[in-house]
Amino acid sequence: MTEREIAERFSNDCDELLAQREPSDHEGLPTDYAATLDIARALTKRDFSAQSQQRLRLRQQLLTGALGQAAVVSRKRGFWNHPLVSMPLAVATLMLFCILTIPSLQPWRALTHSYTAPVVQTPISAAQTALSSLSSQSQAAPQVVPTLAVSATPMMPTATQAAQMPFMPAQLLVLPDAP
């Protein structure tokens, strides 16, 4: 007998045991067949339902219809409770909240509103302003090119100042001392 045939025979014998009938003798079957069938016999006789603590309580709920009413209520709300409905609904609400919140955020305001930077007067820009105002005033007057002694980089140390600085690197560009 092949394993498949033995297995099918075993299933038939188990069905006999479940129907409270004793299977026929085990001639021509493996030696361990009877021992395996004994385990099956033990399993068919095992009933755990007596250990249940909730059997009567649950039955009472069914008889009173409490469970049924709960089922009806949940069936009414079933559509909204379904994950395929509730999840997209939750995601849509979250997205709506984000869309409404984004305009109040600072980077968004900076992008969408016109931004005018504050005017900072540096010595160079002050000189440029002065030059442009002078040139506009002297349209009729003889052309005088004003020479303003404005250092291009007022923060740059002169050679004397640099010499006094012990940690000033030698290769750093310094302006020649003013005459």
Partner: peptide, 26 residues
């Protein structure tokens, strides 16, 4: 159906071996 029978038979044999190791099989 045939596969169910084979799986059941193999599982029961394994269960018997396991109980045998515990000394619960006559």
């Amino acid at each position: 159906e045939s596969n169910v029978a084979v799986i059941l038979y193999r599982a029961m044999r394994r269960l018997r071996d396991s109980l045998d190791k515990k000394g619960m099989v006559r």
